[in-house]
Amino acid sequence: MSDWLRAEEWMALTLSLKVSFWAVLISLPFGLLVAYALERKEFRGRQALNGLVHLPLILPPVVTGYLLLLAFGRRAPLGLWLEETFGLVLAFRWTGAVLAAAIMAFPLMVRAIRLGLEGIDPKLEEAAATLGASRFWVFATVTLPLLLPGLITGAILAFAKAMGEFGATITFVSNIPGQTQTLPSAIYTFLQVPGAEASALRLVVVSIFVAMGALVASEVLARRAAKRISGR
């Protein structure tokens, strides 16, 4: 495929894959935690948390990107703190694209995991507790294995969303070829340049394949996991 795609296009594709991979990997534990809290726990501020999680879904992506810039820009308080303590710079770097993609994909991931949790009978967890399993073991030996299909669906859905993220990313980390130019940003750029329609078109085809592939993979994996769980 590296022959078929030009270097710039190839760069955009690999960057997008890298960004999406890390975005999913980093947000998965948080997604699990938030989904579990929203689905199983009664606490004050539950509705507020629910709203906050869903905010990126309803806000214009540009707004989310600008808010990220305000919070994590190099002179913003959080950005300064991250740079001083961890040497981590987000604004205008690929790491920032990871954060933007993770935040934009987070609501989808949480929804999928919540749906999975909804399908698990809490009575099974109670039964495990009566057999002597502490909360941690109940989670590790009953909840988590039964949640596997939901986790897979959530992760792949989030991955697809991260691959396509545009608005927040371009606002927060700009559109620097080789550094922050993801697949959608590259397509957008090529469309602005006269004579680059072919490049744009090739990336469009790649996008469609990646998206379809993710969808099929999620279906197959989730179904296989569900089959393994039920033993049928």
Binding site: D121, K123, L124, E126, A127, A128, A129, T130, L131, G132, A133, S134, R135, W137, V138, T141, V142, P145, L146, R228, I229, S230, G231
Partner: peptide
């Protein structure tokens, strides 16, 4: 619950669907 050392049997069985019979039996 998990420290009470009671063996509960419920009306609806509540076997763990992802484990086979032997794994269910030795769970506790």
């Amino acid at each position: 619950v998990h420290k009470r050392c009671l063996g509960c049997v419920f009306q609806d069985g509540r076997l763990f669907p992802h484990l086979n019979v032997q794994q269910n039996l030795v769970y506790g």
